[in-house]
Design a protein around this nucleic acid. Structure first.
Lengths: 227, 227
DNA sequence: AGAAACTTGTCACTTCTTTGTCATTTCGCC
DNA sequence: GGCGAAATGACAAAGAAGTGACAAGTTTCT
């Protein structure tokens, strides 16, 4: 199916990722340091690279740049602590294809990796995603509606992302809660309703008559990309 | 609906979980020790495993690893004292799909178990089905009749799904009630008749002369896919 | 401390579900 | 074939459940 190169120094995360990817049929090669990871990338030509930004010896940022310089086609998914995202501009410069902030769900990472591989094979590189007159750039964390930038909060981003990844599917509130809000939830269904409301207000042409963020009565919500 | 394997040594929690799951229509099997639970998991192939991390004899962590090694598809939800999950990475390490800290609400545990099962089954691709000029997409919760979208309510979907799964068989009203509506006893046969009526009105070419949703006098109804 | 974001509760409103009733149909029997 | 009992179809109204919107309380971040 493909080889995943993991460059990560924490043994616990190493093992978690290995198990997850192997379970999905990928081959996995693990390196704990930047230079070694770089070398492995050159010699093995993996289908994708999962790269921790915090590495001993060499900045993950530089590793990423090197990888991209050497073979720009290889998708790179970056892992970083949530505080490090402040310099997301720097992250952009490295040319990474996607990023995840810790703590992350392995399942979600898996989905991103698969999506990245899919894109790289289609050779549809920076496919601008969006719907209606809304354009979405997840790397830059920027949303534009009709050319006008729209500020979204962290949760709104995650929710929007989940909808785009699961376009067209009817999704139960419980599923949104567990997948968007994550493992720690003592949360009510109201929270979901509210974030949906916010997204509608910010992104729908007529928030009162939502076209993209539709209600599925008795179940939850459904995102439709094209009308 | 599915079998839940509970590996937990506290008899009070055992009973609480059993009651909760049975009430939702799950089958439940309970083991009090790690090795026995592992054995049960192998022989019974449950839909999900609820596993206490604090077990006599064998660390719950190891049990989890074993389960995941043996059948990675089976979702495992871990129960633990608050102090044991200070670090979420440890959870990843065990490979568990989700966790709950004690004390927990049975209702919430139920929701997570269901979510975990849903995710584990998501991999199965949705077979596009239909009958006559009606096409059914359960993933999107959309019905088209002659290309025209037909809105169905949540219950109507459930009923339709049951009919499609049991195509061609005469089904008693009582069976429909218990399988589609669940174990609520205070429902009348009128309810079934009414939902059938709605389905006919929405999906039959001539609702007065139903072709697909046929009456079996003295028994109930029968769904015929092809005329 | 101040601001922004997040969560929760509430309530009006919409939509769905269930039930009761009654006309109509079907079946068994004479 | 006709008759009566039982089952079913249809409709409308009561009841229940789900949803949208707002605002206030709480947390988090700066």
């Amino acid at each position: 199916m493909g080889l995943i190169l993991v460059i990560e120094d924490d043994p616990r995360i190493q093992r978690a990722l290995q198990r997850q990817f192997v379970a999905e049929g990928f081959d996995v090669h693990i390196e704990g340091e930047g230079p070694a990871g770089l070398e492995a990338c050159r010699s093995m030509s993996p289908s994708a690279v999962v790269l921790d930004l915090m590495l001993p010896g060499m900045s993950g940022r530089d590793v990423c740049k090197e990888i991209k310089a050497w073979s720009g086609d290889t998708p790179v998914i970056v892992l970083s602590a949530i505080t490090e995202v402040a310099d997301k501009v720097l992250l952009l410069e490295t040319g990474a294809d996607d990023y995840m902030t810790k703590p992350f769900s392995p399942r979600e990472l898996l989905a991103r990796v698969q999506a990245a591989i899919r894109r790289s094979q289609k050779k549809t590189p920076p496919a601008p995603i969006g719907f209606g007159d809304v354009s979405v750039d997840f790397l830059k964390m920027e949303i534009h509606k009709g050319g006008v930038p729209v500020p979204l909060t962290a949760h709104e981003f995650k929710l929007l992302r989940f909808f785009l990844d699961n376009s067209g599917r009817a999704i139960a509130r419980e599923e949104l809660l567990s997948d968007v809000w994550g493992l720690s939830f003592h949360l009510t269904t109201r929270t979901v309703d509210n974030q949906i409301l916010k997204l509608r207000q910010k992104l729908e042409d007529d928030p009162a008559n939502p076209v993209h963020f539709r209600t599925v009565h008795g179940t939850g919500y459904k995102f439709v990309q094209e009308i």
